[in-house]
Amino acid sequence: MTEGVALLTVFVLAVFVGFEVVSKVSSTLHTPLMSGANAIHGVILVGSVIVAGTADEAGVLVVALIAVVLATLNLVGGFVVTDRMLEMFGGKRPPDAPAQSSASAQLPAKEGGE
């Protein structure tokens, strides 16, 4: 049960972090933020892989593989579509924003790899 309590603690702390981290967002970014958050819950892929990896019956494996496909769609599609949205904001930042595209260039389209 201590394991359960530890997870509960993590849960409560994560709630506060989740509230705090998006508390001030301009409406311009609502759509990409929602899409990005949507991609993040695609990590259910981790759970799908674990379950599929322990499947010992054909029926169970089939259902688990469906879960893997669905979760990967969510994860990969989510990050790619968010990137596509944000790409359009790319070159047209307001003039007062410092150019800092070098940082984003260092992580080349990793999301295709999952």
Partner: peptide, 10 residues
């Protein structure tokens, strides 16, 4: 949880 919480705020 992060998505749940931030999604609610959003």
């Amino acid at each position: 949880t992060l998505v749940g919480a931030s999604g609610t705020i959003l």
